[in-house]
Each structure stands twice: as C-alpha cells, then as structure tokens.
Design a protein around this nucleic acid. Structure first.
Lengths: 228, 228
DNA sequence: GCAAAAGTGTTTCGTATACACCCATGC
DNA sequence: GCATGGGTGTATACGAAACACTTTTGC
C-alpha cells in the first residue's frame, strides 16, 4: 500500500507578561528563509527522529530564542494539507508561558529577529502560514485555562504584589476587576505565601507574595476547584 | 536536508449513552490485522492525501463502523515515536458523540467486530497501542467539557425527559444530582423547548423536551456562560 | 495637600443546596 | 396501597459584587 507521510513540525506560541504598562505579549520571529521569508511567525521547526512533539517544542524554543519556559503544553494540531506551500506539513502547536523579564529573546538560526509583540498588535499583523489562526486558538485557550488553573503565576516573577496579579488577570481577561474583591478571593484560595519583604514603589509599600506550589498540590489532591 | 516524515492516523473515541440502565459507552473494534491483531482498539486509520484530520476521522468512522456523529472534535495528538511498533505513526485523536440507539455498529474492513463497551469496562481492558492513554484523556475532556458546554444533548435522542438528561449528567460526572435543583437549573438556562407530547413510561407521564439550538445560538451571541 | 495604591470592612443580592411535600401512573 | 418518578415550593447559607472608608507612601 502507498501511505502518505507528513513532515511534522512543532510550533510554539510563547506568551509573556510585561507589568509596565500591563501588556500580554507573544514571541514572534522574523523568518530568515522561504517560504514566507521576512514574515513574522512563531518559533518552531521539525520534529526529529526519536523525539516527541513536546521535546521538539522545548528544543526549538531554546535553539531559536534561548527560552526555557516554565509552562508548556500541546495546544492543537493543524492539518490542512495546503497550510504549507511546500507540501504536507503537520503543525503540532504548543503554548508556553514565561516571565518576560527573564528572557531577552535572541535570534537563532532560522530567525533574523526575535521580538516580544503586544498580542493586540500581533492579531492585526499578517503572519506566516496559518499562524494567525494558531494565535486565535492559543488566545482562546489561555483565556479559558487561566480561569480554573493557576497558570497565571508562570507569567509573573517569583515575587509579585496583588496589583501585579490583578493587572495580569485584567489584561488576559480584558476587563477590570474589583481590587478589594480580587484580594479577598485570591487570598482565600490559600495558594499565596507572604514573602518577608515589601515592594517599595511610588506609593504605599505592598506585601510581596509567592505562589505556594506545596499548598496547590495539597489542594489538588483534595479534589479542588480553582477559579479566578 | 534529510527530514523525517511520519504516517498520520486519525483515531476516534466515540462516546454513546444508553439510558437503561444508565451507561456511558465507547465504541471499540477488534483489530483484524497485525499489529495487535485481535486486540480491542478505537476506530481510526490513515489520513489520506488532500484530507485534513477531521475529514479523515469522519471517513474512518463511517467506513469502519457506519457512524456519522453529531459531534466531533480534535482531542490531542499522540506523538511518542515508539507508540507503534511498525515505525513512527502520529495519532491525531478525536472525540465523537452519538446517540447509541441510532447506530448499531457494523464491522468494516479492518475490524472483525465492533461493539459498544461500558466505559468502566473499557478502562480495565488492555487496548492496542496507547489507546488506554487516549481513553483517559478523552474521558477527562468529556467530563470537563460537559460542565460548560451543552454537548450532552448530542448523546440523547432528539426528544428526552429531564430524567434522561439528569441520568446522563450523573453518569458522566459520576455523582448523584438533586432532581429538583437539576430541573430548575436546566430549565432556567432556557435552552430546552417543550415538545407537544408526553413520555408514557411505567410512572407518571413526563414532559418531553428537545434542545433548542436557536435559543442556544442566541445565548452564545450575548456572551453566555453555560454551567451544569 | 494630593494622587495612587494598600488594605479592611459592610451591605446587598443572587443562587446553590437541602429538603419537604403533593401529584400521577403502573402494578 | 405502594413504589417510582414528575413536579412545585421554601428556608438557609454562602459567596459574588458593589462600594465606603482608612492608611501609607512619593511627589
């Protein structure tokens, strides 16, 4: 029998969060080679022999942009046979979350540039292949997942104030949240631990918190329901 | 450059619901050929040239079991390079929902048998390839999705009683629901339309309802949040 | 003093939950 | 009559939302 085979690619939508001003960003690279040379695209590349999709995503992310994400998961697989002009390329898309401040992206082999781009800007941009569609799916997933999973913390520095956290949620969800109620709700979850240090800014000093992974694991074991 | 290519397969976890006794079932076929000849597996097969994954899933489902599902979506892509002993086969797994009564599965080319199997039984069974893992992922997805999306209706006949619907939810979620509160909650959503007919069973006649797709679409447009 | 954020407290309201209770049917 | 499900109603409690108010800092 004559069975068609496909090239496998792992692409990664990397989200980052910049607190000042509050901005949700994605990592875009400028393609050095054809097809779509010079166009903006997500980092990604071929899956190698003996490698599964997630391993390929991590490797590509490190090679192309020097990034080792705190969070990475498979998003969706894009299989339109015409999505790549060269022939059948199946893209197994991933979502990754990083602390923007930790990585100033470095352009790797296939990229002439790598930049953090405001998500709203990226949505208006013409992207290579079907990457615009991939971005839409990734955003939907992020907005959904952030509501019942504590993945937001992977976008913040280890220590953060409640204002940081609230700004993050407001940015992702695209709506303002009541500061007072947000504080009570989040603290009531018992997933934050105070850090013995204050944030000194332009205003009244604020308590610094860290995400309490241990408390979270305990809560998960007890059949637990995270909600914003 | 020497780029590895992979065979692409579309596999489908088809869920069905049998009201009496309330049972959540999956469709399993007995493999006619090696590898795993004689083992139970999900229907599926190769994606053909010019075909995307979802089209392949629909085609395979029809060819192998005579089923045209009311609901079908991509689930997850399984990429372990060792998941198939013959070489690299990437499985793009799907979830489908059907009304059990509408399809008595027929065994197609690759299957010597096709049967509805109680999900709990299937979970204890040894399945071909990594299909046991696929089933776990599919079940998690179904349980999650049923809570905020009205996909449950795709598992019921066009007309159903509130008891049918409650039994369905109780079976999927694995816990008893208060009949009175369930009624109020579901009716308050305004997604059910009364049918001008009663269900005559062994007890007091019950109102028959149908899923009101029009009302649902209207609700979705208004930025709507479905909950059990 | 003023602006901006930190932090506490209160009131209101909707709705989830837990039941009590009556109705209608087949056996 | 009795079991079973259909269907209505109610009391309670908890949590979400709205918002008033005080505190603390930099400028």
């Amino acid at each position: 029998v004559n069975i068609e085979r496909s090239v496998l690619a792992a692409d990664i939508v990397v989200f980052g969060f910049r607190p000042e001003p509050p901005t949700l960003e994605v990592l875009l690279i400028k393609r050095r080679y054809d097809p779509f040379q010079g166009a903006w695209a997500f980092p990604g590349g071929h899956i190698e022999p003996g490698e599964d999709a997630e391993a390929a995503a991590r490797r590509e992310l490190y090679e192309e942009a020097g990034i080792q994400p705190g969070y990475l998961e498979q998003l969706y697989t894009f299989t339109d046979p015409k999505r790549d002009p060269r022939g059948r390329v199946t893209s197994i898309a991933h979502v990754a979350l990083v602390r923007t401040d930790q990585f100033s992206p470095t352009a790797g082999d296939d990229a002439s540039e790598a930049h953090w781009v405001d998500v709203r800007t990226a949505m208006d941009e013409v992207l290579a292949f079907d990457h615009h569609l991939i971005l839409e799916v990734a955003l939907t997933r992020l907005r959904g997942k952030v509501r019942y999973t504590p993945i937001g913390f992977d976008l913040l520095p280890k220590q953060f104030t409640l204002l940081d956290l609230r700004r993050l949620y407001e940015t992702i969800l695209g709506k303002a949240l009541d500061a007072s109620n947000f504080r009570k709700k989040v603290l009531a979850l018992g997933l934050l631990a105070e850090v013995n240090q204050m944030h000194m800014g332009a205003h009244r000093p604020a308590t610094l918190y860290r995400f309490d992974k241990r408390a979270y694991d305990r809560a998960v074991k007890g059949g637990f329901n995270f909600e914003v």
